[in-house]
Structures are given as C-alpha cells and as structure tokens.
Amino acid sequence: MSTWDVSSLDEWKSDRFPLGAVIPESGNSRDYVTGGWRSERPVRDDVTCTQCLICWIMCPDSAINAEDEKVTTFNLAHCKGCGVCANECPADAITMVPEGCDLPEVK
C-alpha cells in the first residue's frame, strides 16, 4: 500500500489537494486494480518452463514477478490478460485459461 492516503479524495476541498495536481508519491498505481479487465488468465507450467524470462521482459503490465532470477507468479491485480506472455513463450509453458465468473483474489 502507498503512504499517500487517497481513500477520501472524493470529499477533499480545493485546499486539500497537493499543489498543481502533483502526485506526491511514486508508483502508487500499484493500488489500482486492472485485473478486472481480464477475460483470460495466464497459467504457467513450472515443469515445462525453462525460466528463460522472455515473458517477464515482454509483459506490458509489469505483472510478472521474478525473484532470484526466476519467474514466480503473475500479479493478477494488474494482469489484463493480453496473452503476450503465452504467445512469446518459447517453451509453450504458459496457457491462457478463461476467467470464471468469480474473479480471483487480487489483493
């Protein structure tokens, strides 16, 4: 979570806003969920995956997490389900599966 609390922004008066529409915090779009745009979700097969990291470098939504030089999980709060990762995977280790009516836990 970000430290600049905008939860009550709709009630702020003109003098409450940081000057000149400045956003006083960096990268706080992490709190904004775009996962709801998705109709298909990427699923990675850990066995087939060669950890080449192509999916990581090609993701338009910075939504593929990598740790210790390895792809770990998809950030489903941000993944829009474009499927670039699945399309580019040289090992065919990622498949796009339809989202059900129940959206996954995104937080």
Binding site: W12, S14, F17, A21, I23, P24
Partner: peptide, 19 residues
C-alpha cells in the same frame, strides 16, 4: 513525484481550478 498528471476523467480538475 509526478508533475502534470491527468485529472480529466473523474479527476478533481474543477477543484484544481478553484485552488
């Protein structure tokens, strides 16, 4: 910080002008 943001959807553009 981010300067020159987009306050044009449901953003508080009107409040910025009042300020």
């Amino acid at each position: 910080v981010t300067h020159g943001s987009f306050a044009g959807l449901d953003g508080p553009f009107f409040e910025f002008k009042k300020a």
